[in-house]
Structure formats: C-alpha cells, structure tokens
Amino acid sequence: MGYKLGQYIPGSSLVHRLDPRVKIAAVMLVSITVLRADAFIVVAVTILLAGITFIARLSLAHLLRAVRPLVIFFALIFLVHLFFTPGAPSPLPLATYEGLYRGVLLTWRFVFLILSAAILTMTTLPSELISGLERCLRPLRPLGIPSHDVAVMVSIVLRFVPTLLQELDQIKEAQMARGADFKAGNLLARMKRVSSLVIPLIRNSILRAEEVAMGMEGRGYHRGPRTYMRELRMTPSDYIILALLVILTGLGVYRW
C-alpha cells in the first residue's frame, strides 16, 4: 500500500529546524491575515510564501501536489464569481472584469491557505507536529480539553490508518477470491458490496480497539499528565521568527 504518513519531505533547512509551535502559529496567523486580504496583501503574502518555499528547498511540483485534490472545487468557485459578478462586460459572454478580479482573488486566497499548511507538513515530522499540537493545546486544559489525551488519540489515528488500509485490502482480496466483482452491477448491488467490505472492517476495528485499550492500560496508561521523550526547545531564531510573524500579522490586520 502506497499510503504515506503525512507529506514530510526530509531536509535540514531553517524551515525544517524551526520549533513546530512556531510553524503552527505561523500558519494560523498568516491564514487569518489572508482571509480578508486585498490584492496588496495577497501579493505580499505570496512573495513571503515563495521565499519560504525557496528556503525550505521545496519544489513547485510539491506545492502543486498539495493543491490538486481541491482543484475542482476551486475551479467551481472561480467560475461562479467570474460569471455571476455584476460589472463591466468582458470579451467572454456573461463574464465580467470585476468577476475575473474577484474570482482570482478569492481562489488564490484558498490556494494560499492550502499551500501554507502544506509547507508546514512538508517540513515537519508527524511526531513533531503532535508534540507541537500538544504544547499549543495545553493552555486550553482549564477549559476541559485534555491536551495529553488528545495527543495520544491523534497518534493512535496515525498509527492505525495504514494498518486499517492494509486490512481493507485483505478483506477486498478475500471477497474477490470468492467471486465478488466490485465494478459490476447496479447501484444497489455495488452498495451492498461496499457494505460487505465496511462491516468486517468495523467489526475488526472494534475488537482491535478493545485490545489496544487493554494494552495501553497494561502499560500503565492513565488519563492525565505524562512526560515526553521528545523535548521542544525554542531557540533564538525561533523567537525572532515568531516576533516577525506577529509584526507582519499586525500590519496585515491593520489594513483590513
């Protein structure tokens, strides 16, 4: 199974080495800024993004791969704006120049949101992301969000997605060996066959969950505080970048 956990691209650039908390904060801050951005901010932020991509030694192909899943949706939004925005008519029937401008701006905002998050995952190991997430959620503990337990659950998800995919393949093969054809029949027949995949998958997952829970308790897991093998330490460059980010976001929001 070709499933890859995350899109991490190994490297040792400044972006790779930044504290995951700083990177998570960066994506949050920049995403908020860009949400109501005008053309000026969009251009400024695009230049920033290009700079980060260069420093992190990521290629354009990497970035395109991240956007691809949502291309159809983006195209739809772009076209709706292009054709349904009132304004000066353009050579294309129904389309307006205002529509073109709005379509490009809005679509680019969304592409940007996807790209900034993609750069985060491409330059940060999943386990570092979880550590960063756990630290970022700690201030919410008084609100009843147990950061330690959330981190453990996220790591269980990442641990078991590939295993469940392997299992899905096995169930599928077993059923095809018994003559099930997943590409024939009417809709109802296909739906039935999907149920015959999903039911064993869930049934096994329930038994699995029981055993996983027991295994965790057997290894002394209890809800609440625990320590971590991985330590996060902010370096001077982390602080400098964070300060720069806050200033830039402030400037961006000021322009709203």
Binding site: L5, G6, Q7, I24, V27, M28, S31, L35, A66, R68, P69, L70, F73, F74, I77, F110, F112, L113, I114, L115, S116, A117, A118, L120, T121, T124, P126, L129, I130, G132, L133, V150, M153, V154, V157, L158, V161
Partner: peptide, 28 residues
C-alpha cells in the same frame, strides 16, 4: 473532532488527500 484535528495539523486525511488548516478555513 480528532479526525478534523489530524487533518488540520496537515495530515492528508480529508477528502481527496487534502489537509491543513487551510481546509478548515477554506470553502469546505
């Protein structure tokens, strides 16, 4: 919540393998 969180921190678990905070703030 955990599923969305895993996607938001950027792992490709959303429809079509998308991930990241952008998906949460984005159209879907």
């Amino acid at each position: 919540f955990i599923y969305v969180l895993v996607g938001v921190i950027g792992l490709p678990v959303f429809h079509g393998g998308a991930g990241g905070l952008g998906v949460l703030l984005g159209p879907t």
